[in-house]
C-alpha cells in the first residue's frame, strides 16, 4: 500500500491535475474552433525551454516555464500576424509557425550541447510521468499544477458569462460592450499556461490530447455548456487514471516485467473514449429519426 502511495498516487494525481488544467481552456477552444492551437502551443514550448536554459544556465522549473510561456505567447502573436499578413487560413499559419519554432528548438538543442543536460526531444514529447514520485517530499510539479489548475478554474468562474457570450456570438458580444479581443487573448494565454504546465509534467502529446479529446467527447454527449464542462472534467480525470493504471499494470497482468508509456496510454484512452462517444451520438441521432 505504501508503495502505491509513494510511487503511483503522485503521478496519477499529477496527470489528473494536468488534465484538468488543459480541459478548462480546451472546452472554449473547441467551441471557438481553435482546437489546434493547443497542438501549436505544445510544440513551441521546446524552443522556449532551450532558450531559457541557454540564457540563464539554470535548469529550474520556474525559469524554463517562463521561457516556455514567452515562446507560447510569441508564437500566438506570430500566428495571428502571419494569418493576416499572408492572407492564409489559420491552420496553415499555425503549421508554419510551430514547425519553425520546433525546428529552431531542435537545432539549438543539438548544436549547443544542451542535449546532454536534462533536456532531450523525446522527453519533451512523451513527458516522464513515471518519474514524478514521492521522494521524501512531494514532486514540485504537484504543487505547481495544483496552483495553475485552481487559478484557471477561478479565472474561468470570473469571466464565465462574458466568455460564453463572446464564444457563442462574438459580433453580438462586441455590440454589448464585451471585450471580445481581450477574452480571446486571455483564452490564448490560458491555453499557453495550461500547455506549459502540463508539458513539463506529462509531455506535449498528452497536452494536445487533454486540450481536445475530453471536451470533444463531452460535446457529443451533452446539450448545455455547464454540462459539457462537467462531463469533460470527468472524462479527463477518468482517462488519466485509467490510462495510468493500464500503462503501469496491464503488462504485469499478462506477465511482462515492464511498464508502458503512461502519457501515451492516457492519450490513447482519451481517443478511445471520443470514438465511443462518436458512435453513441450517431446511434442516438439515428434513433431520433
Amino acid at each position: 500500500m505504501d508503495e502505491f502511495l509513494y510511487l503511483s498516487l503522485p503521478p496519477m494525481v499529477i496527470a489528473s491535475l494536468a488534465a484538468i488544467a488543459c480541459v478548462l481552456p480546451g472546452n472554449f477552444l473547441l467551441l471557438s474552433r481553435r482546437a489546434m492551437l493547443g497542438d501549436a502551443m505544445s510544440h513551441v514550448v521546446l524552443p522556449g525551454i532551450v532558450v531559457a536554459f541557454l540564457l540563464t544556465g539554470s535548469g529550474s522549473g520556474v525559469v524554463m516555464g517562463a521561457g516556455a510561456l514567452a515562446a507560447a505567447g510569441l508564437s500566438a502573436v506570430m500566428i495571428e500576424w502571419v494569418t493576416r499578413r499572408a492572407g492564409i487560413e489559420p491552420g496553415a499559419a499555425m503549421a508554419v509557425v510551430f514547425t519553425t519554432m520546433f525546428a529552431l528548438g531542435v537545432v539549438l538543442l543539438e548544436t549547443t550541447g544542451t542535449s546532454g543536460v536534462h533536456l532531450d526531444v523525446e522527453h519533451a514529447l512523451y513527458g516522464n510521468l513515471e518519474s514524478l514520485i514521492w521522494l521524501g517530499s512531494a514532486p514540485p510539479e504537484l504543487l505547481r499544477l495544483t496552483l495553475i489548475a485552481a487559478g484557471l478554474a477561478l479565472a474561468l468562474r470570473l469571466v464565465w458569462r462574458p466568455l460564453v457570450l463572446a464564444t457563442f456570438d462574438p459580433v453580438f458580444a462586441q455590440t454589448q460592450g464585451v471585450p471580445v479581443a481581450w477574452l480571446r487573448a486571455g483564452l490564448t494565454a490560458a491555453t499557453a499556461l495550461a500547455a506549459v504546465a502540463a508539458f513539463q509534467a506529462v509531455g506535449s502529446i498528452l497536452t494536445i490530447a487533454m486540450l481536445i479529446c475530453p471536451a470533444a467527447t463531452a460535446r457529443l454527449l451533452t446539450r448545455t455548456l455547464p454540462a459539457q464542462l462537467a462531463v469533460s472534467l470527468g472524462f479527463a480525470i477518468a482517462s488519466a487514471l485509467l490510462g495510468y493504471v493500464l500503462a503501469g499494470y496491464a503488462p504485469l497482468w499478462i506477465g511482462l516485467p515492464f511498464t508502458l508509456s503512461a502519457s501515451g496510454m492516457i492519450a490513447t484512452v482519451s481517443g478511445l473514449m471520443l470514438a465511443a462517444a462518436a458512435l453513441i451520438a450517431s446511434q442516438r441521432a439515428r434513433a431520433a429519426l
Binding site: 474552433r33 502529446i205 490530447a209 481536445i212 492519450a267 490513447t268 482519451s270 481517443g271 471520443l274
Partner: peptide, 15 residues
C-alpha cells in the same frame, strides 16, 4: 477538433 484528437490519440498509441 477531429484532426487534433486523431493526431494526439494515434501518436499516443504509437508511443
Amino acid at each position: 477538433a477531429a484532426t487534433g484528437a486523431v493526431l494526439a490519440s494515434f501518436y499516443g498509441a504509437g508511443i
